[in-house]
Structures are given as structure tokens and as C-alpha cells.
């Protein structure tokens, strides 16, 4: 019977957490969708102001007036400096890049994290590129690498170009 009191305490903790989970779950899910949608809308904001965004298997379809105007694809590369880099790539139906965003990465703070739009505008240079662009780092190609983070810049560049050709 020694365990009766701890067990009762554990039960009350569990009930408390279950109750709180029920209370907050709805809003938390809404928050998640809201911030996802906000990012996606931002990505195609130059194309349309009132996009309707529909989930697809590999990303999202952007509809404007019932018509598909752009696609947003998820991409991931393991060729970064430290683990996977997760990307979202938005492009028009003519396969021209609208915007690219990094959603998750563990690149070196202060060097490789320039791929994050909140830190540096580096990633906006992909805008307007197509499958015919020179997808390698300058001076050979059209993409300016990040100083000190060649591996990171190359990984992102290749991952973005592969989205257009897949």
C-alpha cells in the first residue's frame, strides 16, 4: 500500500495534463496552420494577394480564382554542413522560381545561417531563375555563394535546381 499515494498523485498529474491538452489542442493546431499558411502566402505574395493554398503529396498548390498559378514544393538536402536543410520552393506553372525559404536547418550560426531569410536576403537571388539557368556557384555559374559557407550555398543551390527538374 506504500505505492498508493504516489499512484494517486500520478493519476492526478495525468488527469491535469489530459485536461490541459484537451483545452489547448484546438488553438495550438490553429496556430500551426496559421503560421504555415502565413509563410506560404508570403512566398507567393508577388504573384497573388488572395491565394488559395491546397495540400498536395509533395507540397502545395497555389490557386487564384480556381486556377493553379504556382506550386510550392518541399525539398530536403543532406549535403549541408551539418545535417538536413529543409526547403520550400515556390515556382510558377512556367517553372520559374518565385521564392525559396529554408524551413529547418542546423548550419553554423553566423556563417551558414545566412540561408535564413530573417538573417540575410541571400536566398532571394533564386527569384526568376529557371531550369535553363546556370545552377552553380559564381564565377562558373549564376549563383553567388556565401563567403565561408560554400558547402551550405552549394547544397541549397543544387536542392533548388533539382526541384525544377524533377
Amino acid at each position: 500500500m506504500k505505492l498508493l499515494k504516489p499512484a494517486l498523485l500520478a493519476l492526478s498529474c495525468a488527469l491535469l495534463l489530459a485536461g490541459m491538452n484537451l483545452q489547448t489542442r484546438g488553438v495550438i493546431d490553429e496556430n500551426q496552420t496559421f503560421f504555415e499558411q502565413k509563410l506560404l502566402r508570403q512566398m507567393v505574395s508577388e504573384l497573388t494577394n488572395s491565394p488559395e493554398i491546397v495540400d498536395t503529396e509533395t507540397g502545395y498548390k497555389v490557386l487564384d480564382d480556381q486556377e493553379t498559378v504556382a506550386l510550392i514544393q518541399r525539398a530536403v538536402t543532406e549535403k549541408g554542413y551539418n545535417g538536413d536543410i529543409n526547403l520550400l520552393v515556390a515556382y510558377t506553372t512556367d517553372r520559374e522560381i518565385i521564392s525559396v525559404r529554408v524551413t529547418e536547418h542546423r548550419e553554423t550560426p553566423g556563417i551558414g545561417d545566412d540561408i535564413d531569410i530573417s538573417i540575410s536576403p541571400w536566398i532571394s537571388q533564386f527569384q526568376g531563375k529557371t531550369a535553363d539557368s546556370e545552377w552553380s556557384l559564381a564565377p562558373a555559374g549564376e549563383i553567388d555563394g556565401i563567403t565561408g559557407a560554400t558547402i551550405t550555398s552549394r547544397a541549397v543551390t543544387v536542392a533548388v535546381s533539382e526541384v525544377l527538374t524533377r
Binding site: P6, A10, C13, L17, M20, T24, I28, N31, F34
Partner: peptide, 27 residues
């Protein structure tokens, strides 16, 4: 015998509560 595990359980409960509330209000 049971004091430490119960203390950890209580701390973990409050941390989980805080985690849920953060996601609720400061996502």
C-alpha cells in the same frame, strides 16, 4: 523511497503544462 520520483513527476507535469501554454499563446 518514493519522494524523488514523485518530485520529478510533479516537475515534469508543470513543464509539460508550460510547454502547452507556450504553444497556445506564444507559438
Amino acid at each position: 523511497e518514493t519522494r524523488l520520483p514523485v518530485q520529478i513527476m510533479i516537475i515534469a507535469t508543470f513543464v509539460t503544462l508550460a510547454d502547452l501554454l507556450l504553444q497556445y499563446a506564444f507559438f
